[in-house]
Computed example of a mutant assay.
Amino acid sequence: MEGLTISVDVRERRSDVPAQLTQLGAPLSIITLAVGDYAVGNRVIERKTVVDLHRSLVNRTLWSQVAALRHDPRRAYVVVEGEDLDDGPVPARPIR
């Protein structure tokens, strides 16, 4: 994957990830992505904090995001960022 640019969705500018990637020397392109938060080559990544994962389950937006990822021809990943998956309003069993 050397030589590839990481496409970052414009809504991800608020997170620390693009700045950290820049510090690591990764080439970035800030654009509007139709699906996911990051795209690299034939991969697309949806990044969720634990709080955002819980919120997405409560307001029922997670499954539409997952459906969009499944219909994208690229290999899709959902990355959950945080220390405690149970740190939110959704009980442990449904969150898993």
Rank of each mutant, 00 (worst) to 15 (best):
Q23Y: 03
V58T: 13
Q23S: 11
E81S: 05
R96G: 08
V78M: 08
P91A: 08
P27S: 15
L62P: 05
T49S: 11
A92S: 07
R74C: 06
D86C: 08
G25M: 07
S64T: 13
I30N: 12
P94V: 04
N59H: 15
K48W: 10
T22G: 08
L57D: 02
P89V: 03
N42F: 11
L57R: 08
R74Q: 08
L62T: 09
T22F: 05
T61C: 11
P73E: 13
V78T: 09
D72N: 15
P94E: 06
V58M: 07
A19R: 11
V90T: 10
N42M: 14
P94R: 06
P89I: 06
Q20H: 04
I95P: 02
V79A: 14
Q23H: 07
P94L: 08
T22W: 03
N42D: 10
V51N: 07
H54V: 02
V50K: 00
R75T: 15
V35W: 03
V44W: 00
P89M: 08
T32L: 13
L53W: 00
V50L: 05
H71A: 15
Y77I: 11
S64K: 15
L24T: 05
L69M: 09
Q65G: 07
V66R: 03
Q23W: 08
D52I: 00
A67S: 14
P94N: 08
N59Q: 14
A67G: 11
R60Q: 12
L28V: 00
W63A: 12
G36D: 02
P89A: 12
K48V: 09
T32E: 15
N59Y: 10
Q65L: 10
Y77A: 10
R60F: 09
V79F: 10
Q20A: 07
G25H: 09
E46G: 04
R75M: 13
S56C: 09
A68K: 13
R47P: 03
